[in-house]
Amino acid sequence: MRTVLVVLFDDVQSLDVTGPLEVFTGAEKLAPGTYRIRMASLDGGPVRTSSGLTVVPDSTLADAPAPHTLLVPGGPGARGPDPRLTDWLREHGPRAERLVSVCTGAIVLAQAGLLDGRRATTHWAYCAELARDHPAVTVEPDPIYVRDGPVSTSAGVTSGIDLALALVEEDLGRHAALTIARHLVVFLRRPGNQAQFSAQLAAQTACREPLRELQQWITEHPDDDLGVDSLAARARLSPRHFARAFRAETGMTPGRYVDRVRLEHARRLLEDTADGIEEISRASGYGTPEAMRRAFLKSLGTAPAEYRRRFRPATPAH
């Protein structure tokens, strides 16, 4: 039996707690005796989450059982944690077989010195702060979670579910993780190196209406001619003016935006359809399977066929 201990504190983000909690609870129901789930706070009293929800822990941290997996959620309270909490984590964190954070819980771990010399991530809005305040930590702002040895950190809010599913898959196998994901109506798990944002969210929304409309049009037509000259003509701008304006208003070049749109489109088709690789490469604007393969290897470190094998949910048994 693996004890999962969730650390609670006032102003914690409720979904950082309940998301992973539902995953591990689902695993325990699926395979009784696998996990013992406990929540603890410094004084053992109820804590009020940032959304106003009151959560009652099982015990104080001092009385909590030794954890196999120690999980630190985030939230406003994580950005200025009680020094007693960081002291407790500094002492007990290294004893856990797995140390996990969700969202700004990574800041708490960093303040306890538990991320020094490691790669980590956190919510996109706080990656720069984490890197600035803790230079011994290698902050990776793009992935939804990062695993470095026994320490795993995840990005904002729902990414804690992805990380918890990955941990359950490690413990109990893919079938168990898939069963839980189906119950929660989520992906089996998004790969850890998936970006925190879709292309449309990662890019700023352009100020000019023609550019905003063009952003949307690109996402709806990934298989069209999306070269700078063609896009500039659609936006009724010269290629040079268009490229400069698009980057200034969206924060990325037209080519980078197109690359992200095509990659996301291909991934969705690989995950959600039974279409062949050649068909998907054409529909996503790559033209050939080899071009799509190169794009996947460059961005994800895996080929399309392997990506599908790992991340497309299997057809449920009837």
Rank of each mutant, 00 (worst) to 15 (best):
T158I: 08
V146F: 08
H175V: 09
L165Q: 07
A176L: 02
T158A: 13
T179A: 15
R182N: 06
P141F: 02
D162K: 00
V146M: 07
Q200D: 00
G156T: 05
S198A: 11
L178W: 05
C207F: 12
R147D: 02
I180P: 10
D142Y: 11
V151M: 03
A206F: 10
R190N: 05
R212D: 01
P141Q: 02
G173P: 12
P210C: 04
R190D: 03
D171F: 06
R174P: 01
L178H: 04
D148N: 08
G192Y: 10
H183K: 03
E170T: 15
A202K: 15
A206T: 03
V185I: 12
T179R: 15
Q194M: 14
L211G: 04
V146A: 10
V168L: 03
L167I: 15
S152L: 11
P191M: 00
V185P: 03
T205G: 08
R147V: 15
D171G: 11
E169N: 09
G160Y: 07
E209T: 13
A202L: 11
D162R: 02
D148S: 11
L165T: 09
S154E: 04
A199H: 03
R189H: 15
S159A: 15
L172Y: 05
E209W: 09
T205W: 10
V185N: 05
T153G: 00
H183D: 02
Y145L: 14
L188Y: 01
P150N: 14
S198P: 08
V185W: 00
E170C: 02
A176Y: 05
R147L: 03
S198N: 03
F187Q: 08
T179Q: 10
L188Q: 12
S159L: 01
L163I: 04
L165D: 06
A181E: 04
V168G: 10
V186D: 00
A176T: 12
D162E: 14
L184V: 01
G149K: 09
A203K: 09
D162L: 06
Q194P: 02
P143S: 02
F187G: 05
V146P: 07
I180V: 09
L172G: 03
T179G: 04
V157K: 07
P143Y: 05
I180Q: 03
F187Y: 12
